[in-house]
Amino acid sequence: MKLRQMTEADLPEVMAIERAMFPLDAWSEGMMRGELADQPRTRHYVVAVADGRIVAYAGLACAADQADVQTIAVLREHQGTGVGGAMLTELLAEARRRGAREIFLEVRADNAQARGVYQHFGFEEIGIRRRYYDDGTDAIMMRRKLDG
């Protein structure tokens, strides 16, 4: 598996993963294009490529000393293989490179697997956004302080 920066040419594969992994609240292609348009100024998006195809992607927003994990998606057949952890490690490293002192994210309250990964990486639950997702599911807000 190899990580590399996401480009607009990746959008067909990325959007297929987005719709498969987030059927109830998938981002539109226009939203994703907007994120990529801010790269590298305030955004950092990566894809994971295995066997010649994209199997995961992730994105970071960073401004001043604060960063936010925008998204992480890993195809089901590649979950539990370390791909998501590698992508999160890259986002944390990029946030540090950009001078962020802390990083935030929201995760579905019903996604215990993702919450466990984030906790393993040192994220702490700091609040709840009620009915955050389109289907009414709450979001758990999480934060991790970044050391130099």
Score class of each variant (00 low, 15 high):
62 C>V: 14
63 A>H: 12
96 R>M: 03
96 R>I: 05
39 Q>T: 09
72 I>D: 04
62 C>E: 09
48 A>G: 11
88 L>N: 02
66 Q>S: 13
77 E>P: 04
61 A>L: 14
53 R>S: 12
101 R>A: 06
90 E>P: 01
39 Q>L: 11
50 A>K: 11
39 Q>F: 12
44 H>G: 00
70 Q>W: 00
98 R>T: 00
77 E>L: 07
84 G>Y: 05
84 G>T: 07
42 T>V: 11
70 Q>S: 12
54 I>V: 15
67 A>S: 09
64 A>C: 13
71 T>S: 14
48 A>D: 08
99 G>L: 01
62 C>H: 05
73 A>K: 06
45 Y>Q: 10
65 D>Q: 10
90 E>N: 05
99 G>S: 03
45 Y>K: 09
92 L>Q: 01
85 G>C: 09
86 A>F: 02
41 R>L: 13
72 I>P: 01
50 A>P: 00
55 V>P: 02
94 E>V: 02
87 M>A: 07
66 Q>V: 15
39 Q>D: 09
50 A>E: 14
40 P>C: 12
75 L>K: 13
38 D>F: 13
68 D>N: 14
62 C>Y: 01
54 I>D: 07
85 G>D: 12
69 V>C: 04
42 T>M: 12
49 V>M: 08
40 P>T: 10
73 A>E: 10
62 C>P: 02
58 A>W: 01
74 V>A: 08
96 R>P: 00
87 M>N: 03
79 Q>C: 13
42 T>S: 14
70 Q>R: 09
38 D>E: 15
50 A>Q: 13
82 G>R: 08
47 V>Q: 09
101 R>N: 03
53 R>K: 14
77 E>G: 08
51 D>I: 00
87 M>S: 03
44 H>C: 14
52 G>E: 11
58 A>H: 01
79 Q>P: 05
51 D>T: 08
71 T>D: 15
97 R>M: 06
80 G>W: 09
92 L>S: 01
44 H>D: 07
69 V>Q: 03
48 A>M: 11
74 V>D: 06
70 Q>M: 15
84 G>P: 03
90 E>A: 11
96 R>E: 06
96 R>Y: 00
51 D>V: 02
69 V>S: 04
67 A>W: 01
40 P>E: 12
92 L>I: 08
97 R>F: 03
88 L>T: 01
54 I>C: 13
63 A>Y: 12
85 G>M: 09
85 G>L: 13
50 A>W: 11
90 E>Y: 01
45 Y>A: 10
98 R>K: 03
91 L>C: 03
89 T>V: 04
51 D>L: 08
93 A>H: 02
42 T>K: 12
85 G>F: 06
97 R>C: 05
94 E>F: 04
55 V>N: 04
58 A>G: 14
93 A>C: 04
52 G>T: 10
79 Q>K: 12
